[in-house]
Design a protein around this nucleic acid. Structure first.
Lengths: 195, 195
DNA sequence: TTGCCAAACGGAACGAAGTTCCGTACGGTC
DNA sequence: GACCGTACGGAACTTCGTTCCGTTTGGCAA
């Protein structure tokens, strides 16, 4: 995840043309398969959709988490970038926090099964945490600290814990018409507020 | 789940002695296996521990959910029974609600993986919902309504949604030292309070 | 006590899915 | 154009849930 970045170019051996082509094809196929069948779609299905062997998937993306991260990297980046913007736009940091959490919820609930896999901390999902959580936690912390500094929320809640919690609340969203995570996330954010 | 109850005895064909013995052995083995390896322990492991074939497990407990329900039935019953007691004991219904939710959290976080399976609504987990959720939702609703009637919380939150949410927040508890669901559950309950 | 039979048992067998491995193909370079 | 190492494909292996069926056995009636 840290090497083979375009840009600096130091010690990046430049992959073969067919490898680059396959990686792009796989990302497209995975994105489509995720939409259609959720992020837990069988590896074979993605391979078939991309017209490659399963070995090729494992070469490019050793774990399912690597593939998920690659597919959703742009959206995570957009979400992370929106944090400071919201903070600058809004007068009340608590408002910015609520909106930002809302964006995160929107992202999660539109991806079948993504919240489920976000919760795991097994070795296989190291990459997920490294890329998703580690990217978003600092943003969330900034929002929390701004709201706490403004005296709008009680301080002390850990950003990681909040994000994990919100992620957990989104588990199973969409598969149960009686359950709407947004209600509970709103309550959670309301609970933060100083009475 | 509804038949073969001791008691009334109408149309209960009385199972064979070996069947009853195996069922008890299986419950013990499953309870032990759940503690050691979580509720997702492989069926074969439970069978081996009980000294029976896998077919015997499926005969007594067609789905994993049936087994889980049978193992934890007593604890669920105790939790459900505690609701009215707490309500009678406490002056403030919101306090009773908070304590009761705390009991539910305690139950969930001490069972590896139980919260995970609680979230599913796939056909296989019908029994889980029928026994766990359907037993607890009315109790939770009673507490919510009492607190709303006392003017302590804003009305309108669905008991099912709250229980699902609390269950979700407990997903992954214990496998991540940085995540303590109790913090967030407390915030959630605090968020219910009328400001 | 003995014999019968349906209930119950055990575990082989099957299917789905993840993961590994290795012979083959091919892109890039000399 | 030849060479070499990267990359490919998919068969094979593993794990796990689930089903199925030949065998055993408990309960009962003769």
């Amino acid at each position: 995840m840290a090497d083979v970045e375009n840009g600096s170019g130091a010690a990046a051996p430049r992959k073969r043309a067919d490898a680059r082509r396959n990686e792009a094809t796989l990302l497209d196929a995975a994105a489509a398969a995720f939409v259609e069948s959720g992020v837990n779609v069988p590896v074979r299905d993605i391979a078939a959709r991309a017209g490659v062997g399963v070995g090729t998937i494992y070469r490019h993306f050793p774990t399912r988490a690597d593939l998920i991260v690659a597919v959703y990297r742009h959206q995570i980046e957009a979400c992370a970038g929106a944090g400071p913007v919201l903070l600058a736009e809004r007068d009340r940091p608590h408002d910015a926090l609520a909106r930002w959490i809302g964006m995160f919820v929107d992202f999660l609930v539109t991806k079948h099964g993504l919240a489920e896999v976000l919760r795991s901390d097994a070795a296989a999902f190291q990459a997920l945490h490294a890329s998703f959580i580690d990217r978003l936690v600092p943003v969330c912390r900034q929002l929390l600290e701004a709201a706490a500094a403004a005296g709008e929320i009680r301080p002390g809640l850990d950003a990681y814990e909040l994000l994990r919690g919100v992620g957990n609340l989104c588990v199973g969203a969409g598969s149960d018409p009686r359950y709407n995570p947004r209600h509970l996330v709103e309550l959670l954010i309301a609970g933060l507020r100083i009475q």
